[in-house]
Design a protein around this nucleic acid. Structure first.
Lengths: 78, 78
DNA sequence: TAGGCTTATTACAGATACGTAATAGGAGGG
DNA sequence: CCCTCCTATTACGTATCTGTAATAAGCCTA
């Protein structure tokens, strides 16, 4: 499955979907990943999290590969 | 161009590369994107930033599309 | 109705990012 | 050498995330 990530909410939705597919509760996932139920809840709800090591680890361990594709269109705010 | 993002440093490297390719300084990029030189400097250096709206906007306006690819391997910390 | 499970949310205290503004050090060109 | 540009880093005060622990509300089942 592929999803474009444009916001914290996009990522949160994805995490929630994967967790649900695996039949886990937020607390179970948190335990498995060394996190907390609160953290998972806020992440899934689209609240801005710190993009630190825990953040990327959590995605990796959920089986989410993040890929950056450059459009080579310079910048140019549109 | 495609790059796997596994850490804040990975993303920082990418941002720096794109900025350099466009011949911009950190300050110029910051002005163009409504950010600050300090923010760009820290982001490029791999310091953990908040994954908030500014964060995703900045990537988008740099021409970076973030994609999440699910491996369908459940979770199972390995 | 009562109990359990799940998620969202709160209060508190502590950690960390943030903007502003400034500065230090390096690179490069007069 | 002097000046300019660039990046990394600092101090300060403010904003926000964080864990812990608890709570409230929803849903389901007995």
């Amino acid at each position: 499955m592929r999803a474009r990530i444009r916001s914290a909410a996009d990522l949160g939705d994805l995490v929630r979907r994967i967790r649900s597919q695996n039949g886990m509760s937020q607390a179970q996932l948190a335990d498995a990943l060394g996190s907390t139920q609160r953290y998972i809840s806020e992440l899934e709800s689209g609240k801005a999290k710190r993009a630190d090591e825990r953040y990327f680890d959590l995605l990796a361990r959920l089986g989410i590969d993040l890929t950056a594709q450059t459009r080579d269109e310079p910048t140019d705010g549109r």
